[in-house]
Design a protein around this nucleic acid. Structure first.
Length: 495
RNA sequence: GCGCCCAUAGCUCAACUGGAUAGAGCACCCGCCUUCUAAGCGGGCGGUUGCAGGUUCGAGUCCUGCUGGGCGCGCCA
């Protein structure tokens, strides 16, 4: 099945060919001026330029060469040489019937099926889902669904942040809280009572302490390296934190309507790191630098100026090298990202990996992608960072609560649901519903408002989160869209 | 300092990759509920596309230079 624009383009291309014109210029598309015609082709202008002819004259020749195919009448000419097409009633009817009978509503499939991994969501085990994860989750889920609908084989991967310095921080925080990790029963009791709420409260405190207290930071770095080396009880503590967090975050994702095929994380790539490091070594890519081990990814002549803390400006390679092993011997996030590519190539053989992550990490991904290509793990073109802007508060800064903390995802959804309930009551809708039905509708309206608002904004820029505007039942909003769908169903029912 | 991104109606955003008269929603003004969900519908008002040049038959779109804003620049992720 082909859509009308494609059918017109094909017919127009044939006409162009008979006149010896480049068929690339024959594309027919929906008209900018629906008052004049349904479809248009601007190619006569470009073709005239290439042929050294007058646009209007050439457009006339093209129009004259058209047969009445049953698809559309001969195009009319307007302006400097636009071709305007009006589709026949019969062609319209056939197309409408075809769409109605097609399970895919006329959407075409990709010419060649690809294997695609969409890496999105990316929750941090120690942080819990907050508004910052909203865009990654919503955009990533949508991209995954679109690719899948288009016929590609797609895996969504949550890629949990469960292997970095934050894990060492938490282990050290627990060590200090318990006065050491030697007392097994005491530790066991602590881990039994572990909750995501605890992690969320303890993590910022530990992170702040690490910034102030150098000794604490060094112990946390050592704990990170120890965990990654498989030490106990580090491993046990990590497992407890991981499991508690995973369970809670699965609930959050579920309430957003977000689901993954792979619930993997940074830690799952860890077993591949030693061999990957040996491989990088054997390829001569690993270099010692200031006690750390790095892979240089800048090409010849790629330099940038860089301002140091003391104000002096030096020239260095650009992009920065990828830090593979810290001076403490631990893996960094670039390390796990690289190892994850190795893992994905091994397990899914992807043609394309999309990273739906905050735009601010663009430089980081460029480093990782270059390193992966340099090591021969995957083609650079198979890796793409689908960056997006932040969700800001009314002050234009990344969203915070009034108290200055991050707003938890669950609380945000709760606020939207409360607003939805109020609007439903105002409109006296659902008064005859059971409590369960009413709550279900309120939840759906709330999620629709949030998702639609996010997706209707340009991905690359930040936007201001304004719940009142998003929850409005008037205008370009999720609730309005839901209302239209419900209304159409009502019409169909009573038709 | 260097790099990336952004700037369009009072506000939030489009503009199909260089085409015709730059479009929607909100807000504001006017008009529509005895029949499908008024959570709605129709109409009106609103523009030197940040500034200055350039390329082109044609520029919001491409190039150059400015101005203003966001973000990033090794041992956090």
């Amino acid at each position: 099945m082909t859509d009308l624009a494609s059918a017109l383009s094909a017919a127009n291309a044939a006409v162009f060919a008979t006149l010896g014109l480049d068929a690339r210029h024959a594309e027919v598309r929906r008209s900018d001026r629906p008052d004049l015609a349904e479809f248009q082709c601007n190619g006569a202008l470009a073709a005239a330029k290439a042929a050294g002819k007058k646009p209007l004259e050439l457009a006339g020749e093209i129009a004259a060469a058209w047969d009445n195919t049953g698809l559309a009448a001969k195009p009319t000419i307007a302006g400097p040489g636009f071709l305007n097409f009006t589709v026949s009633a019969n062609a319209l009817t056939l197309r409408a019937q075809a769409i109605a009978e097609d399970a895919r509503a006329g959407a075409s499939l990709v010419a060649r099926k690809r294997r695609v991994i969409v890496d999105y969501g990316g929750p941090n085990v120690a942080k819990g889902m907050h508004v910052g994860h909203l865009r990654a989750s919503i955009i990533g889920e949508s991209i995954k669904r679109v690719f899948r609908f288009r016929g590609d084989e797609v895996w969504g991967d949550a890629h949990f942040g469960d292997w970095g310095f934050q894990m060492g921080l938490m282990i050290t925080a627990i060590e200090d809280e318990l006065g050491g990790l030697a007392d097994a029963p005491k530790l066991d009791a602590r881990l039994q009572g572990l909750s995501l709420d605890y992690l969320e409260a303890a993590y910022p405190a530990a992170a702040a302490k690490a910034r102030e207290d150098v000794a604490f930071r060094d112990r946390a770095r050592k704990a990170t390296a120890a965990l990654q080396a498989g030490a106990e009880p580090h491993r046990t503590i990590w497992k407890a934190m991981h499991d508690v967090s995973m369970a809670a975050q699965k609930r959050d994702f579920a309430s957003l309507g977000v689901d993954f095929d792979l619930w993997l994380g940074e830690s799952d790539a860890d077993p591949l790191i030693p061999e990957m490091v040996r491989d990088l070594e054997s390829k001569g890519l690993l270099e010692e630098d200031q006690g750390a081990r790095i892979v240089r990814v800048a090409g010849p002549g790629e330099r940038k100026k860089k301002k140091l803390d003391d104000g002096t400006v030096i020239e260095v390679e650009s992009p920065d090298p990828l830090l593979v092993i810290s001076s403490e011997g631990s893996a960094m996030y670039g390390t796990t990202d690289l190892a994850t590519i190795v893992q994905r190539v091994r397990d899914q053989q992807p043609d394309l990996i999309l990273y739906v992550v905050d735009q601010r990490q663009a430089d980081h991904f460029e480093q990782v992608y270059r390193a992966a290509a340099k090591a021969g793990y995957i083609a650079r073109e198979a890796l793409e960072h689908t960056g997006f802007g932040t969700m800001n508060g009314s002050d234009g800064k990344p969203f915070k609560t009034r108290a200055g903390g991050v707003l938890k995802l669950g609380d945000l959804i709760g606020q939207a649901e409360e607003k939805a309930r109020a609007r439903l009551r105002e409109a006296e809708i659902g008064a005859d519903f059971t409590t369960e039905e009413f709550e279900d509708v309120a939840h759906k309206v709330a999620i629709a408002a949030i998702k639609f608002a996010d997706l209707s904004n340009f991905r690359g820029t930040s936007y201001v989160f304004d719940l009142d505007r998003f929850m409005s039942f008037e205008g370009k909003t999720g609730p309005y869209l839901l209302y239209q769908a419900v209304r159409i169903k009502s019409v169909m029912r009573t038709a």
